[in-house]
Nucleic acid binder design. Structure first.
Length: 272
DNA sequence: GCCAACGTTGGC
DNA sequence: GCCAACGTTGGC
């Protein structure tokens, strides 16, 4: 593969899942420096992680928050290895159907590199994506048409529900330029830039903790036709939804319970 | 295997 | 907090 760039999502706001806070902001990331990207219970996301190699570059994205967007840059520091949290019955993302002999879930380690000088809000990327094919938004003329095009093709704007995504080299380059240059009008509030040491508002901000469950689903239907997620082989990508969530190692061993995924508890109501 | 129901993601 | 989009479940 010639893809060495990725985008991974994390939630900067507190949200309790099975008794544990899944918050993992850019500040948290910078503090721990390196963190295992555990908890992904989505085949497509997992497969993408399996493709990652040490040294690959990644975009750290703030999701499910007031200002979603790219907050920092990171690097893959450890190739995919079994996600041990899947075997821990006390973990929110415990998966009873997998074991150490035949790991189902994997994770990589990501190491924080630097903050995006200019936080890149999703709204900006969307604005670019919505711009005419032959025009570059005036305030972003410096990225050029090619830059615009690369953004328009990002999974971030074309799909959205994937917690781990591939990023093309051109999109990566464009993001770099945007982050360094800034200059757009709509950069309203942004989470980054920790002002003075005490900025870590740990105040419990409750986001809309509706009822996000843990992992997503189980089977991973694949558009192509390969629906086998497992097989140690090199599966491509299946598709399933991704989950994003990350948390710093420190609070990992909380101990909770609750499995994940909603297998078949669905009360189906059918006519007649 | 189709497809309606409904859970989840995640922006707004 | 609302809700659109997406995708999975599972009856038939």
């Amino acid at each position: 593969m010639n893809n060495k760039y990725w985008l991974l999502k994390a939630e900067p706001d507190s949200r309790i899942v099975k008794g544990k806070d899944v918050k993992f902001s850019v500040d948290d990331f910078e503090a721990v420096k390196t963190s295992p990207w555990e908890g992904v219970r989505n085949y497509e996301a997992r497969n993408l992680m399996k493709e990652m190699a040490v040294g690959d570059q990644a975009l750290f994205y703030h999701s499910n928050c007031k200002n979603p967007g790219i907050a920092a840059f990171a690097e893959v520091s450890k190739e995919a290895y079994p996600d041990y949290t899947a075997w821990d019955p006390s973990h929110p993302y415990y998966d009873p159907k997998t074991d150490k002999v035949n790991p189902r879930w994997y994770m990589v380690d990501l190491t924080y590199k630097s903050r995006a000088p200019h936080f890149i809000p999703l709204s900006l990327l969307k604005r670019i994506a919505d711009s005419p094919p032959d025009r570059v938004p005036p305030d972003l003329s410096y990225i050029g048409l090619q830059g615009c095009k690369s953004i328009k093709e990002m999974n971030l704007v074309t799909r959205g529900r994937l917690s781990v995504q591939r990023v093309s080299e051109s999109a990566w380059n464009t993001i770099q330029i945007l982050a360094e240059t800034g200059g757009w009008d709509d950069n309203e509030s942004r989470p980054q830039v920790k002002k003075k040491g005490t900025q870590k508002s740990k105040t419990l901000k409750r986001t809309s903790a509706t009822s996000r469950g843990a992992a997503s689903s189980e089977p991973e239907a694949d558009g192509g036709g390969n629906q086998q997620p497992e097989n140690g082989a090199d599966e491509q990508q299946d598709k399933a939804v991704g989950r994003k969530r990350k948390r710093k190692q420190g609070d990992v061993d909380g101990s909770v319970q609750a499995p994940l995924a909603r297998k078949s508890s669905r009360p189906r109501k059918k006519p007649s």
